[in-house]
Amino acid sequence: EAEIKAARERAIVPLEARMKQFKDMLLERGVSAFSTWEKELHKIVFDPRYLLLNPKERKQVFDQYVKTR
């Protein structure tokens, strides 16, 4: 159900806005820029903003977040 709702939101909200919300979530959840995606996943997986991006986009935004922190 959450994935269906997220898919609707992905269709409406522009990618750039969704990427910003995802980055904000990473900051708010205290995701370490010195860790790996796999180790940090448990901090963010239950946040509704996690589903704003598809899996490939999530990883790309995380990688970008790590490089710029």
Rank of each mutant, 00 (worst) to 15 (best):
E1N: 03
A2P: 09
A2S: 13
A2K: 15
A2C: 03
A2V: 05
A2G: 15
E3W: 03
E3G: 09
E3F: 07
E3A: 04
I4V: 12
I4R: 04
I4L: 01
I4M: 01
K5H: 04
K5R: 08
K5T: 06
K5Y: 05
K5W: 09
K5I: 07
A6S: 11
A6F: 07
A6P: 08
A6H: 15
A6Q: 11
A6Y: 04
A7V: 11
A7N: 08
A7D: 05
R8V: 06
R8W: 04
R8S: 09
E9V: 09
E9P: 07
E9Q: 10
R10H: 09
R10T: 14
R10K: 14
R10I: 15
R10F: 05
A11H: 09
A11F: 08
A11C: 10
A11N: 08
I12F: 07
I12L: 11
I12T: 14
I12R: 10
I12E: 14
V13H: 15
V13R: 07
V13E: 07
V13G: 06
V13D: 05
P14D: 09
P14S: 08
L15W: 06
L15V: 11
L15K: 14
E16G: 12
E16M: 05
E16Y: 09
E16C: 13
E16Q: 09
E16L: 07
A17W: 07
A17E: 13
R18C: 04
R18D: 03
R18V: 02
R18S: 03
R18T: 03
R18M: 02
M19C: 07
M19V: 13
M19F: 08
M19E: 08
M19S: 10
M19H: 08
K20V: 14
K20T: 08
K20G: 12
K20R: 08
K20E: 04
K20W: 04
K20Y: 03
Q21K: 08
Q21P: 03
Q21Y: 08
Q21V: 09
Q21H: 04
Q21F: 09
F22D: 00
F22P: 00
F22N: 00
K23V: 05
K23N: 09
K23T: 13
K23G: 08
K23L: 10
D24P: 01
D24I: 14
D24W: 05
M25G: 01
M25F: 03
M25C: 11
M25E: 00
M25Y: 02
L26T: 00
L26P: 00
L27R: 12
L27P: 05
L27K: 15
L27N: 12
E28M: 04
E28F: 03
E28I: 03
E28S: 05
E28V: 04
E28W: 02
E28C: 06
E28R: 02
R29F: 03
R29E: 03
G30S: 08
G30N: 12
G30E: 08
G30D: 10
G30M: 04
V31N: 00
V31A: 03
V31E: 01
V31Q: 00
V31M: 02
V31H: 00
V31F: 02
V31S: 01
S32K: 13
S32N: 12
S32H: 11
S32W: 03
S32P: 03
A33H: 09
F34P: 07
F34C: 09
F34H: 12
F34Q: 14
F34I: 10
F34M: 15
S35P: 02
S35I: 00
T36V: 08
T36A: 08
T36C: 12
T36K: 10
T36R: 05
W37P: 04
W37V: 03
W37T: 02
W37H: 03
W37R: 02
E38N: 09
E38H: 12
E38L: 02
E38D: 09
E38S: 10
E38K: 15
E38P: 03
E38W: 04
E38Q: 09
E38C: 03
E38I: 02
K39F: 03
K39I: 11
K39P: 02
E40Q: 13
E40M: 03
L41Y: 07
L41G: 03
L41D: 04
L41M: 15
L41V: 13
L41W: 05
L41F: 13
H42S: 12
H42N: 10
H42I: 06
H42A: 10
H42G: 08
H42V: 05
H42W: 05
K43V: 01
K43S: 03
K43I: 00
K43G: 03
I44H: 02
I44S: 02
I44D: 01
I44G: 02
I44Q: 00
V45C: 11
V45S: 08
V45W: 08
V45P: 01
V45Q: 11
V45N: 15
F46L: 08
F46C: 15
F46H: 13
F46N: 15
F46W: 13
F46P: 13
F46E: 15
D47A: 01
D47G: 00
D47K: 01
D47Q: 02
D47I: 00
P48C: 09
P48Q: 06
P48N: 12
P48W: 06
P48A: 10
P48Y: 10
P48T: 10
R49P: 01
R49L: 01
R49D: 02
R49Y: 00
Y50V: 03
Y50L: 04
Y50H: 04
Y50F: 14
L51W: 09
L51I: 13
L52T: 05
L52N: 05
L52G: 07
L52S: 07
L52I: 09
L52C: 06
L52Q: 05
L53R: 00
L53H: 00
L53P: 00
N54S: 13
N54G: 13
N54K: 13
N54E: 11
P55V: 07
P55M: 09
P55Y: 15
P55I: 08
P55W: 07
P55K: 14
P55L: 10
P55Q: 12
K56C: 07
K56P: 13
E57D: 10
E57Q: 15
E57K: 09
R58D: 00
R58S: 06
R58K: 05
R58A: 13
R58Y: 00
R58T: 03
R58G: 08
K59H: 15
K59R: 14
Q60T: 08
Q60L: 12
Q60F: 08
Q60W: 08
Q60A: 12
Q60P: 06
V61T: 13
V61N: 03
V61E: 06
V61P: 00
V61K: 01
F62D: 01
F62L: 03
F62V: 02
F62K: 01
F62P: 01
F62C: 01
F62N: 00
F62A: 02
D63C: 10
D63M: 08
D63P: 01
D63Y: 07
D63F: 06
Q64M: 13
Q64A: 13
Q64L: 06
Q64T: 12
Q64H: 07
Q64N: 12
Q64K: 13
Y65E: 03
Y65T: 05
Y65R: 02
Y65V: 06
Y65L: 09
Y65P: 00
Y65D: 02
V66A: 09
V66I: 09
V66C: 12
V66M: 10
V66G: 08
V66Y: 04
K67Y: 09
K67T: 14
K67A: 14
K67L: 15
K67Q: 11
K67G: 15
K67H: 13
T68P: 09
R69Y: 05
